[in-house]
């Protein structure tokens, strides 16, 4: 019952999120080749010294159709969506999960329901998590559907791997927001807390020397590029011993956040 109620609360947001992800391809497709030279002349971009921008731009305007299209997918699906839209959606989905119950004074009656706190958390978490993850895969599926237009056979397995990483990345932010939503009593405070964390991470990402320490480094083109090009096999994504295994680290972080959320809810008092 809680899952059904939660889904009712987030379904409009999930649909809007899917539409936004799909629409992102339009400006990328239409404007990127013209936009890129302008962007290259930007003093701000030069000062930031972000090398991926150059690499993406070269790839998108590359005469080799295959290279261009693959990188377009990376730009459209991952750089913009996973980093910004997915994170924003994760925060939107998670902020109100529990803090809204407190604000509406329904938290106590929810705790008094004859189900365990663990089940309560699970039923609160999985519908928004699904609403977050499914659009990522759907957008990839639609990219595969559109690929006939450029007479190109998209690497489905690589896209699936990259989508999985993007989904894990988004869910991690969602679980972080959920944890704060249990611990804080006001939605605005939750949003401010996660927002501050995101701003900090973006700040780190924008500072060239320490960029590799930013969480967003795990979801940028430098990470997705090799995956999409087929240079990062699945085992490397998930193997923290023989490889970097960043996806596994994100999964572990998600599991820890879920555990902390469960502990916080178990101890929560009306």
């Amino acid at each position: 019952m809680i899952a059904r109620k939660t889904w009712r609360e987030v379904r409009v947001m999930a649909f809007a999120y899917l539409v936004i992800l799909e629409l992102l391809c339009i400006p990328v497709l239409l404007l990127w080749p013209d936009f890129y030279p302008e962007l290259q002349r930007s003093t701000l971009m030069k000062n930031l010294g972000i090398d991926w921008l150059g690499r993406i731009g070269e790839a998108v305007t590359n005469n080799n159709e295959q290279v261009a299209y693959l990188n377009w997918c990376a730009v459209m699906l991952f750089f913009r969506s996973a980093n910004l839209v997915c994170t924003a959606a994760a925060v939107l989905f998670g902020t109100g999960l529990f803090a809204r119950e407190r604000e509406n004074q329904t938290f106590e009656s929810m705790l008094a329901l004859p189900i365990s706190r663990g089940r309560m958390l699970w039923q609160k978490v999985w519908p928004p998590a699904l609403g977050l993850v499914v659009p990522i895969y759907l957008v990839n599926a639609s990219a595969i559907l559109w690929s006939w237009q450029v007479e190109l056979d998209l690497p489905k397995w690589e896209l699936f791997l990259a989508s999985t990483h993007a989904a894990v990345f988004a869910v991690m932010f969602f679980l972080l927001t959920t944890l704060l939503s249990i611990r804080m009593r006001v939605q605005a405070h939750v949003a401010a807390g996660v927002g501050a964390f995101i701003v900090l991470q973006i700040g780190v990402y924008m500072t060239q020397r320490i960029r590799s320490y930013s969480l967003f480094h795990l979801a940028d083109f430098e990470w997705y590029g090799p995956v999409l090009a087929g240079n990062t096999p699945a085992w490397q994504m998930f193997d923290p011993i023989r490889s970097h295994g960043f996806t596994t680290y994100l999964l572990l972080a998600g599991a820890v956040l879920y555990g902390l959320a469960w502990r916080a809810l178990r101890k929560a008092e009306p």
Binding site: K5, R8, E9, N104, Q105, T106, E108, S109, A112, P270
Partner: peptide, 12 residues
């Protein structure tokens, strides 16, 4: 069945 003293409703 418990009716809390401070009890809101699901307005939507």
């Amino acid at each position: 069945c418990y009716l809390p003293g401070e009890n809101g409703s699901y307005l939507q």
